[in-house]
C-alpha cells in the first residue's frame, strides 16, 4: 500500500515536471527589456493573433477551389505558405512590445488558421500592430537556424541562399508555362529586389487591450487575391512565374495590402 502511494506520488511529480518543461518551451515571447523594463508590479495579459487564409471572402481551399484574380484570370492554388516574423504591438504613448524569437511559418496545407500566442504582454492599450512578411536579413545570414526557420520546411533557396518569404503555387488556364502552372516564390533580402515587407494593418477605432491574466484576440485576414491586384495588376498570361528578382519584388509590393484586421476581442 505504501509502495503504491509512493509510485503515485512519483508519477504525479513526473507529470508535473514534464508539463512544466513543455510550458517553458511554448513561452517564447517575452518583453524586450530594451523597450520596457518590467517591474515586480508589472502585470501581463495574453494576446492571440490569428491569421486566416482567404481568397476574397472565401476560405482558401487548396487544389479544388476555383478563383478569379482582379484581371479575371481563373486559377487554383496548390501551395500557399508564408513567414510572419518580428511581431510588434504598439501603444499610443510610443512604447512597444516586441515579441522575441518571433518567427512563424504559416502553411495552408496544415490548416487555414494559424495562431500566434503572445503570453506575456504588459497590460495596457495597444493601438497598432506590425510585423514582417518574410525573414529579416540578419536571420538570412546568421548561419544554420532551427524552429520555424529550419531549412527542412522547403522555404529556403539552396543556390541563391536565403529564405523564401512567401510561396504560392497553382494553375491557371491563362498561364503560358508548361502545364499552365503558376509559381511565385517571393524572397531575396538584398537590393535591388529586396522582398522583405513591413506590414502595418490598421486597428481602426478599437484598441487591443491587454488585461491582467486575460486573453485578448486579434483576427487578421490574409487575402491571397491581393497578391495580384494593386498597385501592379498581375495578368497570368504575362506573368506566371517569379522566383526572386523583379517579378517577386513587384508582387511583394502588392502583398503589403494582403493583411487586414477583421476583429479585436478584448
Amino acid at each position: 500500500m505504501k509502495n503504491l502511494f509512493r509510485i503515485i506520488i512519483l508519477g504525479l511529480f513526473l507529470i508535473n515536471t514534464l508539463s512544466c518543461k513543455k510550458d517553458s518551451v511554448l513561452k517564447e515571447d517575452v518583453v524586450d527589456p530594451s523597450i520596457e523594463i518590467p517591474t515586480d508590479e508589472q502585470k501581463y495579459g495574453s494576446v492571440k493573433i490569428t491569421f486566416s487564409n482567404k481568397v476574397g471572402n472565401e476560405d482558401l481551399l487548396l487544389n479544388n477551389g476555383h478563383y478569379m484574380n482582379a484581371n479575371s484570370d481563373s486559377f487554383t492554388v496548390s501551395k500557399f505558405k508564408y513567414y510572419i516574423t518580428n511581431v510588434v504591438l504598439k501603444k499610443s504613448d510610443g512604447t512597444s512590445y516586441v515579441a522575441r524569437e518571433s518567427y512563424h511559418l504559416i502553411d495552408s496545407n496544415k490548416g487555414n488558421k494559424y495562431t500566434i500566442v503572445l503570453d506575456s504582454v504588459p497590460v495596457g492599450n495597444y493601438n497598432a500592430i506590425n510585423f514582417i512578411l518574410g525573414v529579416d536579413s540578419l536571420r538570412n545570414t546568421s548561419g544554420a537556424q532551427t524552429g520555424a526557420l529550419d531549412p527542412s520546411y522547403g522555404m529556403f533557396w539552396s543556390w541563391n541562399q536565403g529564405y523564401i518569404f512567401l510561396m504560392m503555387e497553382g494553375n491557371s488556364p491563362n498561364s503560358a508555362a508548361f502545364n499552365n502552372t503558376l509559381i511565385f516564390h517571393l524572397g531575396g533580402f538584398t537590393q535591388p529586389y529586396n522582398c522583405i515587407r513591413k506590414i502595418n494593418p490598421t486597428f481602426g477605432t478599437s484598441d487591443l487591450i491587454s488585461s491582467d491574466g486575460k486573453t485578448s484576440t486579434v483576427e487578421i485576414k490574409t487575402d491571397l487575391l491581393k497578391m495580384f491586384e494593386s498597385p501592379s495588376l498581375i495578368k497570368f498570361v504575362q506573368t506566371s512565374e517569379g522566383m526572386g528578382g523583379a517579378v517577386a519584388y513587384t508582387i511583394a509590393n502588392n502583398c503589403v495590402n494582403m493583411f487586414s484586421v477583421t476583429s479585436i476581442q478584448n
Binding site: 539552396s158 543556390w159 541562399q161
Partner: peptide, 19 residues
C-alpha cells in the same frame, strides 16, 4: 560557391545536398 550564392558557411552544405 563560384557565384557567392551562399552567404554563410553553415548554410553552404545545403547547396550541394539539394542540387
Amino acid at each position: 560557391f563560384w557565384d557567392g550564392g551562399s552567404k554563410h558557411i553553415e548554410l553552404q552544405p545545403i547547396g550541394p545536398i539539394l542540387n
